[in-house]
Computed example of a mutant assay.
Amino acid sequence: MAAPDLLFNLRNNFYLGAFQAAINNSDLPNLSPDDAVERDCLVYRSYISLGSYQLVINEIDSSAATPLQAVKLLALYLSSPDSKESTISSLKEWLADPAIGNNPTLRLIAGIIFMHEQDYNEALKHTNAGGTMELNALNVQIFLKMHRSDYAERQLRVMQQVDEDHTLTQLTSAWFNLAVGGSKIQEAYLIFQDFSEKYQMTSLVLNGKAVCCMHMGNFDEAETLLLEALNKANDYFRLCMELHSDYMPWTKQDAKDPETLANLVVSCLHLGKPPSRFLSQLKLSHPDHTLVKRAAAAEEGFDRAVQSVA
């Protein structure tokens, strides 16, 4: 009989965006050394997802295992625009080191960082070999970013052959179905609905359901789901301020989830409601978001057109 997977619930919480729950329920007894490292990686990645970069940077020292050092690189990369260049340089050095360059967590972090850089070919150099469900799921995301749904589908089939019921396989199926569109949207919605019935409702699941609703033209339902997601983000903010106020850079990055705000802007436009409040929040908290850049480009284009006829 196979040994029980002691990290199952922790992984599930992380995959579905229940980051504070992952942190709160991470004190697991009787872990092997390898499982203990994976547990710590998931906990620190949860802190990163909550914006607590400095806690991760402070707590992972130079003696930590390679997977933890990789997670620290991600925190360094995200903590400040000024640190990105040096972090990428360090990352490339580590990837070139034959002793650690093939470490799955290091390759995963490399894929995440190069995806942030929109250097998808470089990301695939390190993720394409797969080896873990997270690497396979990241490959699907990269291929979808590259508008190569054919390659994404092949990678999804690999995941389904390994474990069709795995949370990441189901989540990746939903991403793929949303990208393909058409009749697949309903299938994606059912996956998110199943998650919401089985597990804690999170911003990630609510946004997934909301995007499905928008694709199906149900903007009222989408708005309700997104406002619930925004309330959950505010609850996280208050809790994190109580628990980790020394580390949280909330003056720069507050609890407003960028995808929730962006999706609210879109739903408001389709409902004929003014989106200015949500767009202003997005501009303040995430000025580099794609929607903010597009809005700025549209405003500049409009201003130039007005000046040309003035």
Score class of each variant (00 low, 15 high):
157 R>W: 08
56 V>C: 07
114 F>Y: 15
308 S>A: 15
226 L>R: 04
117 E>Q: 15
256 K>A: 09
3 A>N: 13
245 S>V: 07
286 H>T: 07
191 I>A: 05
269 L>D: 10
207 N>P: 00
82 D>L: 11
85 E>I: 10
285 S>Y: 03
171 L>I: 02
184 K>I: 00
248 M>E: 02
75 A>L: 06
72 K>G: 03
160 Q>G: 07
290 T>M: 10
200 Q>D: 14
196 S>H: 08
154 R>L: 12
42 L>I: 09
268 C>E: 06
120 Y>N: 05
37 V>W: 08
237 F>K: 12
237 F>L: 10
59 E>D: 15
115 M>I: 00
29 P>H: 04
304 R>C: 09
133 M>W: 01
95 L>E: 07
220 D>E: 14
256 K>F: 07
215 H>C: 13
80 S>D: 12
144 L>K: 01
137 A>Q: 03
179 A>W: 01
145 K>H: 10
129 A>M: 10
14 F>P: 06
238 R>E: 15
125 K>W: 02
243 L>K: 14
178 L>I: 13
49 S>F: 04
303 D>L: 14
183 S>C: 00
260 T>G: 02
219 F>R: 04
236 Y>W: 13
13 N>D: 09
158 V>S: 01
247 Y>T: 02
121 N>I: 03
216 M>G: 01
116 H>T: 06
287 P>M: 01
92 K>T: 13
210 A>C: 01
145 K>P: 00
225 L>S: 10
301 G>Y: 06
277 R>G: 00
89 S>G: 00
302 F>W: 13
54 Q>T: 13
105 T>I: 15
56 V>E: 04
11 R>D: 05
45 R>G: 03
226 L>G: 06
13 N>F: 07
19 F>I: 00
132 T>N: 03
83 S>E: 11
269 L>E: 15
182 G>A: 03
309 V>E: 11
83 S>L: 09
154 R>S: 10
147 H>P: 00
273 K>T: 09
184 K>A: 09
246 D>K: 13
121 N>M: 08
309 V>R: 14
69 Q>G: 01
91 L>I: 13
210 A>F: 04
235 D>A: 14
4 P>T: 12
82 D>E: 14
197 E>Y: 08
179 A>Q: 08
102 N>Y: 12
24 N>R: 14
15 Y>E: 02
38 E>G: 05
227 L>Q: 13
119 D>W: 04
44 Y>G: 01
58 N>Y: 07
286 H>Y: 04
22 A>I: 02
155 Q>E: 15
166 H>K: 05
269 L>R: 13
18 A>E: 11
64 A>Q: 13
13 N>W: 07
271 L>K: 12
68 L>K: 12
66 T>I: 15
155 Q>A: 06
130 G>I: 09
179 A>D: 09
260 T>W: 00
177 N>H: 15
269 L>S: 09
100 I>M: 07
212 C>P: 03
29 P>F: 01
152 A>L: 02
254 D>F: 12
265 V>D: 01
27 D>M: 11
30 N>A: 11
2 A>L: 10
283 K>M: 13
38 E>Y: 11
175 W>P: 00
23 I>E: 02
291 L>N: 01
57 I>S: 03
259 E>I: 04
67 P>G: 02
284 L>I: 04
186 Q>F: 11
8 F>C: 08
66 T>A: 10
19 F>M: 05
178 L>M: 09
106 L>P: 06
19 F>H: 05
282 L>A: 03
246 D>C: 06
